[in-house]
Simulated assay, not measured.
Amino acid sequence: MAAGGPVELHDDVRRHLLHLQVERRLAARTLAIYGEAFERLQRCADADGVAPRAVQPHHVRRWAGQMHRQGLAPRSIALVLSAWRGLYRWLGRDGLVAANPVDGVRAPKAPKPLPKALAVDQAVALAQPLDDDTTSPALAARDHCIVELLYGCGLRVAELVGLDVRSGAQGAGWIDLPDASAHVLGKGSKRRSVPVGRPAIEALRGWLTHRDAMAPADEPALFISQRGTRITASQVRSRLKRRALIAGLPTHVHPHMLRHSFASHLLQSSGDLRGVQELLGHANITTTQVYTQLDFGHLSKVYDAAHPRAKKRSP
């Protein structure tokens, strides 16, 4: 039942609100939220011609469904049901209801939020060499290479910082320049190889000229800090955030956003879900389906171009 004008609350409900205010000492904002929930309960009960004490589980389930159909968010429905559940628990302690009609009734599950992807032009702008007078040429080359690998290969930040200069060292992975491939150790200690594109290879060569002058002889890490030690995931996040600001991007950028952008852009261009799954290192293809966002317009074009039932009829 949608919210409307003023409603006369049942005595039981008014007494419970007073209990929350005086004995529980809830904050004014919290009391207002409870009050709105109880007004919604009263409207639902009045519409069905049932007294609050006579409410049954089937009433609550139907009212929760009504709230969902009216567009109330799952989290908001959960808050309403929690307030109702507390009311009937309180009434039950005084023996005024035989059972709590809200027990066992749950709000609809909220959809799992997907990480945001950058637009293609934003990702390309972030990957371009930036004119930054406050950063040394060495760090600028390093940060440029980091972006190219995160976006160009879809690496996780842990896979990136675990890269070594060559295979056989202590790190989790390495990049084979002649073969233009990255070999990484992903989740579950599973190794995979991904191709490295020409822009990333060029950025990598540019960084290596600086790295060799910065790193101690016994440091195997591909990406190092100014102190000559392996760069951390936190440092990558900080540098990426700063780089996005310099590039003028209108959003906060983090490493996983570049991985998601890699997957989304590749999938929209190729439509090869299985191939993207392999490149991301997902054990289950359903993970790839949830992880990547597809543009519906692109899907429609793929369908129109490929499916025999999609051929337009002649007029």
Rank of each mutant, 00 (worst) to 15 (best):
M1S: 11
A2Q: 15
A2M: 13
A2N: 15
G5M: 00
V7H: 04
D11N: 13
V13Q: 07
R14N: 06
R15N: 12
H19Q: 12
L20T: 01
R25I: 09
R25H: 15
R25Q: 15
A27C: 10
R29V: 10
R29L: 04
I33M: 07
Y34I: 00
F38Q: 00
E39K: 08
R40V: 07
L41V: 01
R43G: 06
A45D: 03
D46M: 06
G49T: 11
P57I: 10
R61N: 05
A64S: 07
G71V: 07
G71R: 09
P74W: 06
S76C: 13
S76Q: 07
I77D: 06
V80F: 01
A83Y: 06
A83T: 08
A83G: 08
W84N: 01
Y88S: 03
R89C: 07
W90S: 02
W90M: 05
G95P: 01
L96R: 15
L96I: 13
V97I: 12
A98L: 12
G104I: 09
P111D: 07
K112Q: 11
K116I: 12
A117E: 05
A119S: 14
Q122W: 00
L126T: 00
A127L: 00
D132W: 02
L139W: 11
L139I: 13
A140T: 13
R142Y: 09
L149R: 02
Y151E: 03
Y151N: 10
G152M: 05
D164F: 03
V165G: 01
G168W: 14
A169E: 12
Q170L: 09
Q170E: 11
A172E: 14
I175G: 02
D176K: 14
L177D: 12
L177M: 14
D179W: 11
D179P: 02
D179G: 12
A180T: 06
A182V: 09
A182T: 04
H183M: 01
K187A: 15
V196I: 15
V196N: 04
G197K: 09
E202S: 10
A203E: 02
R205H: 15
W207H: 09
H210T: 07
D212I: 15
M214A: 15
P216T: 14
E219C: 10
E219R: 08
E219S: 14
F223K: 00
F223P: 03
I224A: 03
I224S: 04
S225F: 02
G228R: 10
I231N: 02
T232Y: 05
A233H: 00
Q235N: 07
V236P: 05
R237A: 10
S238A: 12
S238C: 06
S238R: 13
R239F: 05
L240V: 11
L240E: 04
K241H: 15
A244Y: 07
I246E: 05
G248C: 11
P250F: 12
T251C: 15
H252N: 14
H256K: 04
M257F: 14
R259V: 01
A263Y: 05
S264Y: 04
S269T: 13
R274Q: 10
Q277K: 14
L280V: 14
G281R: 01
A283F: 07
N284Q: 11
T286A: 14
T287H: 05
T288S: 05
Q293K: 10
R309Y: 12
A310V: 07
K311D: 08
P315H: 13
P315A: 02
